[in-house]
Write a protein that binds this DNA or RNA. Structure first.
Lengths: 148, 148
DNA sequence: TTAAATTTGATTGTGTACAATTTAATTGTA
DNA sequence: TACAATTAAATTGTACACAATCAAATTTAA
């Protein structure tokens, strides 16, 4: 029992969180490679599939990403033909991105991906729900801190 | 209820994991800035504080990182004076890194960091343990997959 | 014992992340 | 109305992450 115990890797909660998130995206990679998408591009497409259209700012709020990350990423998705970009007519500062027909077709082709990944994680239904709730509890608390 | 529900962001387990890990390291940043360390440098020092000495390969196994990430990071920690590098005498392929006196002094100065971060996460003891166990369960399963 | 296979760390290239700054557009206010 | 403050994206710079490749050293096996 030392005063340094709190600095041991095994006593950290953040480290398994960090390592686990990386492990998950690493195991997503072979699944996503078939569609020529990275994980971040994939979740960006998820937002687009649901909303059809959104500003860069809105996408950033959904994904906790800023324009420094999203601008090049969105340009790549545009060059792949999955989304289109246009200045907002309401407010010329904003850029509205819209999912294309090709982008919607991609959704059909990717329906099997979450299932394939789920088989990889191997938690029970109950454990998965537990984890889900704990993670959103932390995220919610951070959101609260940040808006203050 | 659509066949596309599995592709909704809110139905993903991976997304809050990814977002939460980023939120945690983001909130670590102001704490670590005072010591001129990044999060990855910080956990690398944790390994060094515990082991005093380890090969690049061993550090990588502890942290789930490869030489592409560790080589430049270790060079930075060396230039800050917290560790030293030397070829292994046993096996000239290996590079052994060793924590310096300055590196050990840093541990004393950083004892307050985990507590400060813990106050930020705001889970009960029980929830934190639950989360810890779930994360290591996933990591353990991935380890199993990977070694096969 | 050598030649092939493996291992270790470094290097290169791509893709995030995110802070900080810049530019253009909009809003608020005196 | 003017003009300061704010906002949205883009840009720039630093630091991971990791795949792929390389070079040097070591191990294995024929």
């Amino acid at each position: 029992m030392s005063k340094y115990d709190c600095l041991k890797l095994e006593n950290q909660l953040c480290f398994p969180l960090y390592a686990c998130a990386k492990a998950v995206t690493r195991h997503y990679k072979p699944l996503l490679d078939e569609f020529d998408l990275t994980y971040t591009q994939y979740i960006t497409m998820m937002v687009m599939w649901e909303r059809k259209s959104a500003s860069v700012k809105e996408v950033g709020e959904c994904l906790y990403l800023d324009s420094g990350t999203l601008t090049p990423l969105i340009n790549k998705l545009e060059s792949k033909g999955y989304i289109s970009k246009a200045r907002s007519s309401d407010d010329a500062r904003g850029v509205i991105i819209t999912v294309t027909g090709e982008g919607m077709k991609l959704r059909d082709r990717m329906v099997k991906v979450p299932g394939a990944m789920g088989g990889c994680v191997a938690l029970s239904e109950k454990e998965a729900t537990q984890l889900y709730n704990l993670l959103y509890k932390i995220l919610g608390h951070f959101d609260q801190i940040d808006e203050a």
